[in-house]
Design a protein around this nucleic acid. Structure first.
Lengths: 198, 198
DNA sequence: ACTCTCAGATACATGAGCGTATCTTCGATA
DNA sequence: TATCGAAGATACGCTCATGTATCTGAGAGT
């Protein structure tokens, strides 16, 4: 198909995206307080003026980065659940999981930074709650369908298990980066053993 | 026994402790970059001058806080493992675990902040590595002994399971604070089901 | 071709925080 | 009682970052 016309709105969106890219990069490396708008603008190839045309202040920029980040993670995860892991074994599954949820150290740091931010800013809980609801829902649906085709009964409600998996996920990712010690696979092995009710 | 004499060294240690208390408080609430030495000193009832008599700079203060914090957590955890949970059921165990490892929101935030810090400062990995080795070791020993008395064989090496548990722990704590959703208990239930080899 | 709007750059005011250098005061020792 | 040392307070310099206010230039519409 033909590429989008280069209209002014499109141009604006484009620089906005560039700014978000740069912001994601710098926030990930330096953290929210540690990152300076000056740095971000420079990485994007603009000046601070550009940032303030697009975002009210530093916090809004940070929020926007994370909104996009979460949205993308959600899509990637859904994609993985649908296509990739038809009949995979633990090892392959672990690898894919890791790739999707914690692709690299900087992104992991960004996620942790964001978690900290919302922990310290309870007024944003509502905004984040939706994302935190959708992800376990997807996993639960996937597990239920799996359980049905393989004919097992789950020991606990799928949604509960999904929440546990997601909660554990961050810690596993951190451990992988820090101790470089792959705990995804043992975790999945334990999980597999634990799921079927007696 | 008689209380310690009020010698100069003791006095110095005392204010050092007060400074660490205040620093822990402020770092937990504002984060490393967000906290100001001015605030910390004021909370402790001193001025910045006192801080610089005891610590070289902000980073060293932060490190000292976390050293003490980790040390205490280790002791509390060891204590719990030895005494409290002789024959407890999941519910009680979950509660105690939670109390020890994530007693309140601010402390959780502090731990996350520290994790982020070391993630971004690889040169400190050596310092932290020791703490990250001792904790799983303790848990592994506990589990092996448990397994022996109850006569089950573990599905995976105890140390691996211990690492998984600890990795998961942070995420569970966060979920508890944020979603206020207690996942410790379901996690333990799954774990119990998963541990015995077939 | 002309103007007008708006994206982005430049300039500015302000403040906060770190680290250092210099006091001051209080208790220990002689 | 006089001196000395060190804990902690005060004072200073300096950098850096945020937010706002103003300027400039390019492209869209007439």
């Amino acid at each position: 198909m033909a590429v989008e016309r280069w209209t002014p709105e499109r141009r604006r969106q484009h620089t906005r995206d560039l700014l978000l890219d740069a912001a994601q990069d710098v926030f990930a490396r330096r953290g929210f307080e540690g990152a300076s708008l000056e740095d971000i603008a420079e990485v994007a190839g603009f000046t601070r003026g550009a940032i303030y045309k697009h975002f009210a202040n530093k916090a809004e920029l940070f929020l926007a980065v994370n909104e996009r980040f979460n949205e993308r993670a959600l899509i990637a995860f859904a994609d993985m659940l649908e296509h990739d892991l038809a009949g995979d074994e633990n090892a392959a599954l672990a690898r894919k999981w890791r790739e999707v949820l914690a692709p690299e150290r900087d992104l992991l740091a960004l996620g942790m930074e964001f978690n900290l931010y919302v922990l310290r800013h309870p007024e944003m809980r509502a905004q984040v709650a939706e994302h935190r609801r959708r992800l376990p829902g997807m996993i639960a649906a996937f597990m239920e369908q799996r359980a049905a085709t393989t004919g097992i009964t789950l020991r606990l409600p799928a949604i509960t298990i999904a929440r546990v998996i997601l909660a554990a996920s961050d810690g596993l990712a951190f451990s992988a980066e820090f101790d470089d010690d792959d705990l995804y696979e043992p975790f999945l092995e334990l999980l597999n053993a634990a799921l079927p009710a007696d």
